[in-house]
Design a protein around this nucleic acid. Structure first.
Lengths: 360, 360
DNA sequence: TATATTTGTGTGTGCGTACACGAAAATTGT
DNA sequence: ACAATTTTCGTGTACGCACACACAAATATA
């Protein structure tokens, strides 16, 4: 492996001078710069990232701003774990990660948490831009401070974010439509059950719904979709009542699509008699949802690889910090189709981290 | 971040002594060893892999022994690219990778290539164990030389391999059966078209077939499967004749399952009239197969994530070399269900590497 | 000639590794 | 019992490679 020392020798300059050229730090005459660059090119030189990382020790701090998770909403645990794993991996490259969690239903929490975050003066930020107005405020501050930021999970336009890591929600919904049709080829009505009303305009949930509907429209399929909006999608009697009475009134409904990670709640609310007759499709590989796959109450889950989203966000941003350049700013995670039989092979990483953390 | 120096100071010994304890290099009294270990434990210390790699510089050589790829058999290109990408990633950790390709249909080529490989005195070997008898010979040599080896893609028992990276073929076949049944719920006959006769007993292909058949048996489904074996599964007139005449004789066949990456050839061989009426399911996301998904001649592909297999093999073996320990010896890759709509989000990594390689 | 500017050099630092060597303890011989 | 020798145990330090700062030399400007 060729080193800076080699290059310096060949160019008959000192190592320091080569380093200056490599990092455009100035103070080098055009002539020597050209000479050195030519030699670098010729040897196809690239710095040894390991030595580089060692020398730069502890230069960067990435702060993350993502929704917090709890027992009811386990989804956000996965990105968090992915972030932890990523943090572990980049730690020795001089990148530190600190995490800030906000209440995903509360814009104030979002802003307040950000204020705490910005106090710590991070080098870069990874965030889930949940509310557009507040996001605008946040982004303004970041840009004033010249702090690069990366969006995760929710893709909204009109910002100068470094990149995006997440799923193409529209296509994911489209695929859900296809799977629904595949399971129920005969004309039928499908019910979309939607939790809380959209918070961001360009929300993942609404894009999934659009994709789902579009599948039937674009393929001229004689099935229809209807939507049921429920304010608090929990296992309360109120929700049960709403869902079951709706199903009773609409016997034409043969399939249920829940464009969020809450399908397990819907399934839990439905009366047995409906459950056994309906095809259910939902999103996200949370433990509760996986249990529904296992006991055959849900036929398909679409995974948006939440763990990978967290992990890749760290990886991508670290790449940006180290190389000052990003190869592929939009990182779309795969749209995984999960069924009972393949779910156990999916995202195994999640389980390793726990072990690694407690281990010496 | 806590360093060896810190530990040494706390234990009132020198750094060298701590290092000896860390690597069990002996020459340390039980008492001091215990003291140091306790402190290590207490601080949850782990060596900085970056500094470690820098200090060890160029200690390891991984040799890979995998089937070579060509235009007709593009499948093996992906693991190869995954290996290249992995090699790039671990290069700066002092791990070098050299690749050896053999003709997957020729046991002699397998052995001869191995002989060339072993001449280079590698530290460890990644191999695709294609022929059992020859594999036994190879493994004997490796074990005599105390060279650790990792199996990729084909999992055979009875060897002391460090681990395995690949897919659970049986379950993948089982899932293929489920998808077939989902597409054609009514009782029907399904044709399995098999290329060259099994080379290894515990072949991936035969496990997939077993899984496919078992799906129908275990779920008491009134469909049947039949098998057509073709010696050379290429686009020759001979193959076309065989396939089409078989389909003519067996109009009850409604679906075709090809448990290898050659479904595109089968599709190419079939007459239009059959093609439009048949449900086709195959394996592997090769460019040709993906084209078949796109033009709707194939409804499902199951990907065994070949790129990831190569990449993970390098990662896993590097972990073993650096830590002398492996967290999870059996690394099963996900069983990805590919359809027209989600194929483009799958395994994007493959495209990046090309750019990275030519880049300075 | 004095002063500012450009261009280049030398070196300590980050952290772990492993070797050469020194000190202390244990064993042997007489 | 005491010196001589071996064994055990531990220290000190020169690498590996890139980075960046303090400083020096060379050149340009006043």
């Amino acid at each position: 492996m060729i080193t800076i020392k080699d290059i310096a020798k060949e160019a008959q300059v000192s190592e320091g001078t080569v380093d200056r050229v490599l990092h455009n730090r100035g103070g080098v005459s055009k002539k020597t710069e050209a000479k050195i660059k030519k030699i670098l090119e010729h040897h196809n030189f690239s710095v040894n990232p390991v030595a580089s990382a060692l020398a730069m020790k502890n230069k960067y701090v990435i702060a993350t701003l993502i929704p917090e998770h709890n027992e009811l909403d386990l989804f956000w645990q996965s990105p968090y774990l992915g972030i932890l794993k990523g943090a572990e991996d980049v730690k020795s490259f001089g990148v530190q990660v600190t995490n800030f969690g906000y209440n995903q239903y509360d814009p104030d929490s979002y802003l307040n948490t950000f204020n705490a975050l910005i106090e710590t003066k991070p080098t870069a930020v990874i965030m889930v831009p949940n509310f557009s107005a507040e996001t605008k405020k946040i982004v303004n501050q970041l840009e004033a401070l010249n702090i690069p930021y990366l969006f995760v999970n929710i893709d909204i336009d009109g910002f100068n974010n470094i990149g995006f890591v997440g799923q193409d929600s529209y296509n994911a919904g489209y695929i859900a439509g296809k799977l629904m049709h595949l399971s129920l080829p005969k004309p039928a009505a499908f019910l979309i059950i939607q939790a809380r009303y959209n918070i961001t305009k360009n929300n993942a949930v609404s894009n999934r719904i659009k994709g789902f509907n579009d599948y039937f429209v674009k393929n001229n399929i004689n099935s229809t979709t209807q939507t049921l909006k429920i304010e608090n999608l929990d296992s309360s009697n109120e929700t049960k009542e709403k869902i079951n009475s709706y199903l009773e009134k609409h016997p034409e409904v043969k399939g249920v699509f829940v464009p969020s990670s809450r399908i397990y709640i819907v399934v839990d609310c439905m009366k047995k008699e409906y459950l056994s007759q309906l095809e259910c499709i939902g999103f996200d590989n949370t433990p509760q949802n996986i249990a529904c796959l296992q006991n055959d109450t849900v036929s398909f889950l679409i995974s948006q690889k939440p763990f990978d989203q967290g992990y890749e966000a760290i990886r991508l941003l670290t790449e940006y910090l180290l190389k000052n350049d990003i190869t592929n700013p939009k990182h779309y995670v795969p749209i995984d189709i999960l069924i009972k039989e393949n779910v156990k092979y999916n995202e195994r990483h999640e389980f390793n981290i726990v072990k690694n953390n407690t281990k010496h």
